[in-house]
Design a protein around this nucleic acid. Structure first.
Lengths: 334, 334
DNA sequence: ATGAAAGCGCTAACAC
DNA sequence: GTGTTAGCGCTTTCAT
């Protein structure tokens, strides 16, 4: 494998000049630039990136911490991150944490070891077991919640939940169930807050028994639907904390002979692509997922470049999309 | 940040000894080992992995080339890869190619640049646009097809397709439709071959109009179902080339008032987790996805270590699972 | 078992 | 604009 020294000999130029020709071509004469380029081609010289990174102490890479790579929702954010990172010359490494703190630790260590310059975390901040923020590790939290103690990009979860539950209330629904995420999850908490606020503002009493805990995954929506069906008095509408569970609930009710939206209204959260394809199409909240990824990457790279160093927070607008899964409350039906 | 030199000073031992204490502890006296360890803790010394990789010319990392990170199917293989890679001390980097040759090129260059030691490709080999195998780049193809010109791990796609279609035929079906993957995809080709063989062995004529091209994704199964519904004579069974499309087809038919398996039998391929949760549960082929990932990683790491260098091929057994989506052909129904 | 010393391939002052 | 040179932090002979 040819080294910079070989190119130097071949061209009778110093290694310094070769190096500059590659990294700061504007500071090398055109004539020598040409000579270098032909020599590089001739020797099939490829810079040893390891040496380069080692020497310049910058990895030109960022790590994305994702709880679950099989989740379409995260995939879109990652795409956003990747598009801006690549454009800035950064590799993006994906680290699946599966919610495990020790895995997270491993990846964060990679940036401490200079294998990456910073990390974007796709899990919301949880006080008791968050490894970030960390001294010397540039990091930003994408799709985070309120009060994240480091730079973050998110939407107003409380407001979005408030909006969608209000929609249900305006449709005449009073018994509104919820299929939540894991109880202690920050997103669950914030969306619950919005739900509660909407109820309160409309003088509807909160009924804890109408809250069924899910885990944001499909099958938990299925199970939840069954629980609702078995209740003495099934709610006339259900606020699901994401689309996967909403889709599952629709399916579950359908199989039990309960029609959406005729018999029960259902709302989602996230606006997955499929949510438009299924029947009935899902009423939901659309997040600017890809944009969130892009912005996160921009912020992180800015931090790495030594610009914006202090904790920033970007709140993106969401979109409330009324489709077919919600309808007016009809007394006789329930 | 403390360096190995700092530890050396702190302990009054040479850097060489410190290095050995970390990498070949058996060649250092227990006494000094203890001294080194306490010094390391005291100084909070963390080896600079970049320097280490640079010096030892091995990245201790492998790249997984995946067409689509949002695909559960790939996710499971990646998990298999990761578990054995990590155990062997290798990082695994995930590179999403989106089927783009230039993206693939970028990642392969990473291993040429010594940022990774090898690559595992999750897309099957296609002669005209495959960048692998490549001189000096250790690579293995996971979930590949026949005639992959480099080390590969796969199942017998032809046999599996033959098996599942035969099952349909044994149930009395004669008009058997197929929802395929993209026409030129190697998996499509092999599964088609199995379908054709099963037909032939049972003296059923092949009818090209019964083949609807999909793209392995959910929505394409939905569209295909509609096409079948609009046919003059809808088949009584459909062989889908993966579970996603089968699930979609079931859903599509359901919405159009066609029941599975009463009115039409449907089979899948892959055995996704959800395929067990939906109603009717899917008759399908289960692949040892995770095992395929594990074996691929083992082979690659062996290659990197300089053991098995020549092209290997592992064919894993698949599992044929009969569940609820297939039933006997009943004349009156169609 | 340990230490001394020579680099790995590259970049970045600094001098010219 | 170009060359010289001194390392980056680590591993690895080779003596001892």
């Amino acid at each position: 494998m040819a080294t910079i020294r070989d190119v130097s000999k071949e061209t009778n130029l110093s290694t310094g000049t070769i190096s500059k020709a590659m990294n700061r071509p504007e500071r090398v004469s055109q004539k020598n630039l040409d000579i270098v380029h032909t020599a590089i081609k001739k020797l099939n010289y490829k810079p040893n990136m390891l040496a380069k990174k080692f020497r310049s102490k910058t990895a030109n890479a960022i790590i994305v911490l994702v709880p679950d790579i099989a989740n379409l929702f995260f995939a879109k954010t990652i795409r956003g991150i990747e598009s801006v990172a690549r454009r800035a010359g950064y590799d993006v490494l994906i680290g699946e944490t599966k919610g495990s703190v020790s895995k997270e630790e491993e990846f964060i260590r990679m940036v401490e070891n200079l294998l990456a310059d910073g990390v974007i975390n796709l899990s919301p901040y949880v006080k008791c077991n968050s490894l970030l923020p960390r001294r010397g590790v540039f990091s930003v939290s994408a799709n985070s919640c309120e009060e994240t103690p480091y730079s973050s990009v998110r939407i107003d979860n409380v407001g979005a939940a408030y909006k969608i539950v209000s929609h249900l209330i305006n449709l005449g629904h009073k018994r509104i169930g919820v299929i939540s995420g894991l109880r202690e999850n920050p997103h669950t908490l914030e969306r619950m807050k919005g739900y509660l606020m909407a109820l309160k503002d409309n003088n509807i009493n909160f009924d804890q028994s109408l809250v069924v805990e899910g885990d944001f995954r499909y099958w938990s929506g299925l199970i939840a639907a069954e629980k609702f069906k078995n209740m003495e008095k099934c709610p006339s509408a259900i606020f699901c904390m994401n689309d996967s569970m909403a889709l599952a609930a629709i399916r579950g009710f359908y199989d039990m002979g309960i029609q959406v939206p005729q018999d029960i209204s259902i709302t989602g959260f996230d606006d997955l692509e499929v949510s438009r394809y299924i029947a009935p199409q899902l009423t939901t909240i659309a997040l600017p997922t890809e944009k969130i990824g892009e912005k996160s990457a921009e912020i992180l790279i800015d931090m790495i470049h030594g610009n914006e160093t202090d904790c920033q927070e970007y709140v993106f607008p969401y979109e409330f999309i009324i489709r077919e899964s919600t309808a007016n409350y009809i007394k006789s039906k329930t």
